[in-house]
Design a protein around this nucleic acid. Sequence first.
RNA 1: GGCCCCUUAGUUCAAUGGAUAGAAUAGAAGUUUCCUAAACUUUAGAUCCAGGUUCGAUUCCUGGAGGGGCCA
Length: 597
Amino acid sequence: MDIVSQLQQGIAEGLKSLYDHEVSASDLGLQPTRKEFEGTYTFVTFPYGKISKKNPMETGEDLGTYLKENCEVVDGYNVVKGFLNIEVSASIWTSLFNQIAAKPNFGAHARKGETVMVEYSSPNTNKPLHLGHLRNIFLGYSVSQIYDAFGYDVVKVQIINDRGIHICKSMVAWQKFGNGETPTSAELKGDKLVGKYYVEFDKAYKAEIAQLVEAGKPKEVAEKEAPILLEAQDLLRKWEAKESDTYALWEKMNGWVYEGFDATYQQMGVDFDKLYYESNTYLLGKEQVAEGLKAGHFFAKDDGSVWVDLTEEGLDQKIVQRSDGTAVYMTQDIGTAIQRFKEYPGLIKQVYTVGNEQDYHFKVLFLILKKLGYKWAEECYHLSYGMVDLPSGKMKSREGTVVDADDLMNEMISTAAHHTKELGKIDGFNEEQARELYDTIGLGALKYFLLKVDPKKRMLFDPQESIEFHGNTGPFIQYTHARISAILRRASELGIDTESLSISSDIQLTQTECDLIYLISELPNKIKLAAEDYLPSVIAQYVYDLAKEYNKFYAELAIFGEQDQGVTTARVALSAQVAKNIKFGMSLLGIHVPDRM
RNA sequence: GGCCCCUUAGUUCAAUGGAUAGAAUAGAAGUUUCCUAAACUUUAGAUCCAGGUUCGAUUCCUGGAGGGGCCA
């Protein structure tokens, strides 16, 4: 039983014995004691005045006295106003640490035997990935790692928006202006090449509109009648009719995009277990609509369109199928969700990582699924995140202010390289090791920067200044890990077995060492919190706090200079465990940690 | 028009309804005979406004201001 549970138990027994009041031990809230007070855990006594019929201070005294006498982990206590600060006996820290150090996978929760699906990328195939996608993908990937650590089997999926007018626009422009250009001939990544023709389309389209307006057409009419747009729409019709030339061109250009995306994903260090393509799923859901209509969950309007009425739920009416019988996004999302639960029998929930501009869409989707009688609808979650702003404001592709994902990653890596060389940290590295280190640091900085913020908040990204290597950053944490690795190497040289370490019970621990053990012990709790609230930022904050505390320890205490061999061993043991926690925690964020930097 | 989200040091971010609101950066002052100074120590600086609930509100409720988003 861990310390918190023992204290909760003790307090519950105390309340029963002192005031004849029954509570369930796990309901009692304990919080870490603030730094400026003595103690480890604090129990707030204000709310118990009614039960004790005494003031909060006296209540605290009563409980403190009881705990000291009856609870073996309690060494002492102090009361400040309504706060009972509980001091845990020093020997507890040693045994707590030794229990942790004996577990090879400390932090990971027991397997639950249930499956969670995390969808964390849903790109369109007409444009390369950008900064917003990076936040999306890093967030979703991290949540999938966190769920794995929390004991779930995780299926990581991508839904690719490979059909529709957007890709037809790129196709038209390539046909007209491309002269048979390919990624190889253009020496351009496939996604970039297709994106280039999407821009070409837009240019030609605008020029045609201007011409039509010049010729006297109203702007709104010109926007609908521009010949190149009509051609794109014609291509979409041909694609839907599976006209063979169109289909072949579509397959060719999407193929280029996938090669480009794959390279980007590889650089990002993410992968998927299963890919979904909209061209396969966009017709799904119409059956469900028909059934829902029959069952009275939906209703039809005079024009034949099908709607759902969510006014009882405080929302609007929402269309689920067009009057011409074609699917809207909602139709296919209903179909896809149901299909996925059929495909994966152990699946208990789905997480959709999608920007907050879709909040309404997902609210409606989940309500509809619930109306259709699917119980798992309540377990589905929209991991909604805020936009990434630039100092100039919102990213706008029309104004050319979009930050490209590949460019940004490369920039981060070269900045890391520059910085590392400047500090003279690559002595003894060969070229490949050096390159790997720059990758690790550059991507670590970027991922940490995007993940340390609460997902739902919009965030500012300043390419010039945002990414630092000092302070609350990925490289700071990586650096801490590298420092510890150096200590472990030294310890091995001195003949200390760094694999199976423990702290001898007669060692007097310092305050900093106890604080470190406390932080180390918090890892499983943090993983639980991060999983339940879908917050990689909780893990980021935790790893940072741990690294910071370790650096304090490192600065104020000697490790190998100690006379007492037991103290040296204890401090090496602590260091080794901190390194393990950092490595594991960072892996939950998708970040690697180096042994030297 | 209807609905949703956000607002905390100069700046970028924290804070299950709890103590004197934490970090990081930028500013000021220090720390290398010692395990990696991408570090450590000290210092100054903030809850958008007005009400309400509560023993206690950055947190919950109502109204307002500012910013952002969604709506066949």
